Simulated scan of single mutants.
Amino acid sequence: MSAPAEVPELVSRALDLSRQRGFITSIRNETGRLLAALAASRTGTLAELGTGCGVGSAWLSSGAPKDARIVSAELDPVLAKDVQKIFADTQNVDVIAGDWSTLEQYAPFSLLFIDIPEVMETIDVVADLLEPGGIVVLDDFVPSAFWPPIVEGRVDTVRERWLTDERFAAVEMLIDVDASLIIATRR
């Protein structure tokens, strides 16, 4: 079996910005490849809440059809401007300076990547942002071998809610021995 191809050019540029800015927590390549694969099956508007240095948006763009629109919001206006430069030649990606709620005007989303813990807790708001059949990917969970999921001696109520909410068909996916994510499809 051969190794996966190098990361796409936009992803490489976003990772370079991440290193320059001292970000050590951009998404893993495994998560990025999953986002690209999911984006390839989507039409309409895709979004990332919590742009950071644009790594997630770059992965979405690498997989999305050319007629799909990708919007992303970054709270730090200086960082948003730097990320906008990465996507300057990418017609279907818009990076907005503002908090995640500035993207509500672009909903409903066919694919939504969330990397902001406070937003993950607002399952009702997220459900309203997705079109029927829309997919949300929630990143940065610590794997748990228990049910209900236990992390640091406490029940992970956010994960428990996402995996049991009847509005979604959801699954937790192990990305690495120390990382998992949730993929949930709006019924």
Rank of each mutant, 00 (worst) to 15 (best):
A5T: 10
A5W: 03
S12E: 09
A14C: 08
A14M: 07
L15Y: 02
L17D: 08
L17V: 05
L17H: 01
I24Q: 07
S26K: 03
I27S: 09
E30P: 07
E30F: 00
T31Y: 00
R33D: 02
R33E: 03
L34S: 05
L35G: 11
A36W: 03
L38G: 10
S41G: 10
S41N: 12
T45R: 15
A47L: 05
L49A: 10
L49P: 00
T51N: 05
T51V: 09
T51F: 04
S57D: 05
S57G: 11
W59I: 07
P65A: 12
A68T: 07
R69F: 02
S72Q: 02
L75D: 03
P77W: 00
V78S: 12
V78C: 09
A80R: 06
V83K: 10
Q91C: 07
D94Y: 02
V95T: 09
G98P: 01
G98S: 08
W100C: 13
W100I: 09
W100R: 06
L103I: 01
E104N: 15
Q105S: 14
S110M: 09
S110R: 11
F113L: 08
P117E: 04
E118W: 03
M120H: 12
E121G: 04
E121A: 13
T122N: 11
V126P: 08
E131C: 14
G133E: 14
V137H: 13
L138S: 12
F141V: 06
P149A: 01
V151D: 01
G153W: 05
D156L: 00
D156K: 02
V158N: 10
V158K: 03
R161I: 00
L163A: 08
L163C: 08
R167E: 01
A169N: 12
E172V: 08
E172A: 09
I175V: 15
D176I: 01
D176W: 01
I182P: 08
I183H: 04
A184H: 01
T185H: 13
R187Y: 10
